[in-house]
Design a protein around this nucleic acid. Sequence first.
DNA 1: TAATTTACATACAGACATGTATGTATGTCA
DNA 2: TGACATACATACATGTCTGTATGTAAATTA
Lengths: 224, 224
Amino acid sequence: MARRTKEEAQETRTRILDAAEVVFHDKGVANSSLEEIAAEADLTRGAIYWHFKDKAELFDAMMQRVALPVEDILERAGGGRCDLEPLQVLRRATADVLLRTARDTRVQRVFDIAYHKCEYVGDAAGVRERHIASQSECLKTIESAMRACVESGALPKTVNPREAAIGALSLVSGLIANWVLAPKSFSLERHAESLVDIWFRGLATAPTAAMECPAKAIVKRLRK
Amino acid sequence: MARRTKEEAQETRTRILDAAEVVFHDKGVANSSLEEIAAEADLTRGAIYWHFKDKAELFDAMMQRVALPVEDILERAGGGRCDLEPLQVLRRATADVLLRTARDTRVQRVFDIAYHKCEYVGDAAGVRERHIASQSECLKTIESAMRACVESGALPKTVNPREAAIGALSLVSGLIANWVLAPKSFSLERHAESLVDIWFRGLATAPTAAMECPAKAIVKRLRK
DNA sequence: TAATTTACATACAGACATGTATGTATGTCA
DNA sequence: TGACATACATACATGTCTGTATGTAAATTA
């Protein structure tokens, strides 16, 4: 077949990435052959090997293509525009990640691949490292936002910013992971805001003896 | 080599399962060959094929071996012994799953495999179904416990039991998934109870206008 | 104690998937 | 307009894994 122009080559690259998304999602990363991906894109393996070194690099490129926009949401929320009510900004950003996931098919597919259809080992070790690093950075962003809320008095002093961030991040990633695994089990879109609200109410409410486990309360009283 | 007695054969089976755990955790399920697993157990593939039909069945057996005790924790807490304070029982059970994970190396390995080192597709489709089914049942248990708390007045009427259960499950599974991915990023053992408490405080606290996003509050006021 | 079954080890054939080498027609540029 | 680089397609050699078939020595049973 004839050689394509540079723009057409870029389109070919995009088609390969799109095909990889579909095939990876369908059969899992390890069980997908480059042959299948090429066929899905109406190409041959030659095209894939021209644009990417191997399957790992293709997978990598596919992930980064959607990882950036999602990270941007948190980035903008954390750094961003509104120092007036950092708590509300954080809540909104958190809920937005869920809502964006609930609405964007591509984001869903990629989250599904990331959570349930790839293995973070061996060839994809780089991906694992990057996943951890990106999560760690995300954690830092949320943590500093939480800290700001505590210092501004929007959250009580009893809140541990890092702990609050860990919980928020885990809640969100857990919700996404569980939902993409079985989207029919509940409506992420309907419950997103409410679920986030529950977490932030928990943070905003100072712990009371009544809430504690009786045994612990007794221990505490004895210590006094 | 010589034929073993029945008890020795059972021990061989166990050794295979142990080896599978280690190798799967090391190289991922898809990238592990039965040859490697056999070598890890000081056996040959013949032994594996004698005890298990194929890799999928081996993986399956390995998962079920640890899945049962974990499910039991929730089962006992949900059905169980204490109708006096269902809320405390539920909180304790939730925290216990986290603490057990934080302390038991085997549970950690298997969670790590389940969350980050296997693909829920193709051969393992049965595993995926079972994962979904088990999670759905787990959800039902938590949900009915939540409902009981609402009806007994331990939680406010405004709490949607299913939503509360979804959040709790997602928080726990998200925490476990994130922690086994990077155990050094935070101490699960130290924060487990506190994190669970935050969630339950969020449930116990009725929503107030002050907590809501200003825009939403305004919309609400306009509707009145 | 002889026959049979069990619990493996060994040997073999076939199926893929990968990576690379090579072919080729067309843009691109001097 | 020719020479070279580009963007693929095609062909091939290789390795690896799987499943199964077969071998075998000891445990079990009658």
